[in-house]
Amino acid sequence: MLKINNLHARVEEKTILNGVNLEIKPGEVHAIMGPNGAGKSTLGYVLSGREGYEVLEGDVTFNNEALFDMEIEERASNGLFLAFQYPVEIPGVSNMEFMKESVNAVREQQGLEPLSAAEFLKSAKEACKQVQLPLDFLKRGVNEGFSGGEKKRNEIMQMILLKPSLCILDESDSGLDIDALQVVANGVNSQRDDKRSFIVITHYQRLLDFIKPDFVHILANGKIVKSGDASLALKVEKEGYAFLGKEFEGVEA
């Protein structure tokens, strides 16, 4: 599904990623943890194609195609989805219009007919209920005036509607209380199957109590320095990042 090979990238003049290697197979859930500034969010942005994030070395294939040859919107319509850590507010564009355009853009790529307004409304209402947002959120401007938790749930709603094959969740748990965390986790779990894969970027192990990862990777200084199974996350939770070496002593998870 996704193969990252020796990826180096920088933002402005600062090199953030220093040779990331990672392979994700269909149906797998990979958690990426690491201290602040390790490059976790950068990895998400580079994969989704955000401007200003420059690839210096290495390559990435997504479903055996060169990811960096694709425009941002092509990556998305081919099934890559990034749930933003800080979703953008767009007053003047309704959530409904935004999601309908997205869904139909992805359907067009898949050779499917666009959904009619009525068909879309039906599935949007279902998704809205699933993430426990009031239905009037569909009519409001995209993320306009939403609380932090509402924005995160809106991201999950989009994921449910777009049905991407690879989801990157960038700290979808940050700033959530336990109830909201469960809503987000249930949303993700409802989408898991043997074809769809997830990268869960998080600071805290607590999300991983709800979304069980197949693999856990520790990203530090722009590299994956350790990989393991779910028990690695528990170890980080308990011991912090001291095991990475002297410079990480005292850095809490």
Binding site: R50, E71, I72, E73, A76, E101
Partner: peptide
């Protein structure tokens, strides 16, 4: 930022 957000959901640049 807003443009990137829409593109990242598959919406074509012109749209």
């Amino acid at each position: 930022q807003a443009l990137y957000y829409l593109l990242s959901r598959g919406i074509k640049r012109s749209k």
